[in-house]
Design a protein around this nucleic acid. Structure first.
Lengths: 340, 340
DNA sequence: GTGTCCATTGTGAGCGGTCACATTTTGTCC
DNA sequence: GGACAAAATGTGACCGCTCACAATGGACAC
């Protein structure tokens, strides 16, 4: 493995100049720069991240905290973040945080100081955990929040417009002729649940229709089981809805299952819409119409925010809220309302 | 942050002695050792991994390569591995490997040299990719293989007994009175598919029953859609099976869905068994009887193998095959065969 | 006492970079 | 051509730790 010295020797300059070239320092002659570049190429030189971290006390890594991945959400963000890091020449460093958070402070401290992590991406629910954010700030770690319940005045947030997305879902159903639309709400602790329900209601108002029957909104908890219960409640009604909008894909899948169990044909007898575009949405039959959370874009924006942090700081409080663009993915689970 | 010098100063010894204490070197007086330990405690000393890596050119991290996580398998191993690393005072370093593997050699090389990774855990399908293993060996990286198609003569493998597990599934169904059992096979490219099908057949032989009707074994591909097709084929038969054993949980879930769509009551009219104990197995209704892959144990063993590598080397070729213990998880999707 | 030996401890260098600062070059103007 | 500032480059130290080797001490035999 070639070191900076080898490169310097070959280019006939000092190591420091090589360092300057690597870090895009301004004051290097174009000629020298090219000579150094050439030497790097010739020696297939790869600067040692470790040495750099040791000296400069900061790594080019983006940290992320992970818990149990069974929900799927974290995993997808994690994957998207790895891709984003890769594209930005960064490295992703993950630390486990779950269950009994006993001694979590020490764990985080070690993660940050040992790994030299100076920047982190925080996911729900950690992105709303004030003590954690305070600890990180204390250690000079810059954070970007993904879908926090409420924006933070010190860290930029990457969010999607859950309310608008829910409205789009309902408008899509309206366009198919559905009037009685059921909604299985999300877990009451999640801010997104409220936003999605509000969007559901707003769509009626925006279309100049009367407020939907409150009985058509049933509670849920984002789980398959919760979705099953919600679907049962809705389909047991005397005047059941012709379409059901579940606050996430797991519950929507459960709804499909329950409907098929009752002998309903999808989407003829019932249209179902989910939210998230989780793997299950494309896997099951009928595949789910759903809202695609733009994970790629979210993580890309997160890295961009981190990259341009200094600019952000100059820009103001650094508390920007970055909105990402979701999209309605229409698949097989929605169709025109049955005539009659 | 306290450094080794601070500790040395406080303990009244040289930094080297502190280093010796940290690395459990033999030749340090008990008294000195205790004094150093005390100083470490007093200063809340955390040795710098970065410095250690730089100097000793090897990190205490275990590497893993990750691709698209949508299958769920990687994610679960990843999580289990993080837990295992945590318990063993190690750190997990993940690198993305997927899609167009153009330039994968450089990526891997960088991962290994930059990160100082000297040990890796290889998952399917990478664990069977010879060029990758050769490259890693070339760089002195020690590997542990998880569920490889065929064992490697140079790296220990952690496997589970797919065949025995499949046998247990069938025996469980036998014990419930099922005689006509369908099997939806896995993706033909996966070794596990064959093993599970063989186990399925073996169970009949072991029970002294005639070889099962070949028509009862239908092809699959581990996907939900493939499971749907397989279930349809089986349930469309003139003399349909009373139980279906799918080679993984996704296909089992699809089978449940298809059966319920046809108005069958589970498990009264049809018993269904999956394989893997994926999150979906516990999520759906009825929850799936399935084989639990012992991920915790597998990853724990992997780390143990890595920890005791030198011992292994002395022991022979280092090509141990470590068998882990699966278990049959009986849930709601299986029940006694319907009388008559 | 003093020479030998071994166990325990210390010394200085260096891993591969970057930092603050010193030094050299270069260009500009009179 | 010489004075001068500004730009370009080089110098050594140092980040925190571990390495090879040297040095210290005490126990023991003579």
């Amino acid at each position: 493995m070639a070191t900076i010295h080898d490169v310097a020797l070959r280019a006939g300059v000092s190591p420091k100049t090589v360092s300057r070239v690597m870090n895009d320092h301004e004051s290097v002659t174009a000629k020298t720069r090219e000579r150094v570049r050439e030497a790097m190429r010739a020696l297939d030189y790869q600067p040692s991240t470790v040495a750099r971290v040791l000296r400069s006390q900061s790594a080019p890594a983006v940290g992320i905290l992970m818990g149990d991945p069974s929900g799927g959400y974290q995993t997808r963000i994690h994957h998207a973040l790895m891709v984003a890091c890769l594209q930005n020449g960064r490295h992703l460093s993950a630390e486990l945080v779950e269950g009994d958070m006993a001694g979590w402070q020490d764990r985080i401290r070690a993660f940050v100081t040992e790994g030299g992590v100076r920047e982190m991406v925080l996911l729900p629910p950690e992105c709303d955990f004030a003590p954690l954010k305070a600890l990180l700030r204390e250690h000079g770690v810059r954070c970007v929040l993904i879908s926090p319940t409420s924006p933070d005045s010190l860290s930029p947030s990457i969010v999607m417009d859950d309310r608008a997305a829910a409205r789009e879902v309902v408008e899509h159903l309206f366009s198919l002729g559905h009037e009685r639309i059921g909604h299985i709400a999300g877990h009451p602790d999640h801010a997104a649940s409220t936003l999605r329900r509000n969007g559901f209601n707003e769509a009626y108002a925006a279309a100049g229709k009367p407020r939907p029957d409150p009985a058509l909104i049933v509670p849920g908890d984002f789980s398959f089981k919760g979705g099953l219960a919600g679907a049962q409640a809705l389909l047991d009604m005397d005047d059941p809805p012709t379409a059901i909008f579940a606050a996430n894909d797991d519950m929507a899948a459960a709804t499909c299952m329950e409907a098929q169990r009752r002998g309903l044909k999808l989407p003829d007898d019932l249209s179902v819409v989910g939210f998230d575009d989780a793997p299950i949405a494309a896997a099951i039959w009928p595949s789910l119409t759903t809202i695609r959370q733009p994970f790629d874009q979210m993580t890309q924006r997160a890295i961009t925010a981190l990259n341009g942090w200094s600019a952000n700081e100059a820009l103001g409080k650094g508390a920007a809220t970055i909105l990402t663009q979701h999209s309605l993915v229409i698949r097989e689970s929605t169709g025109p309302v049955r005539a009659g």
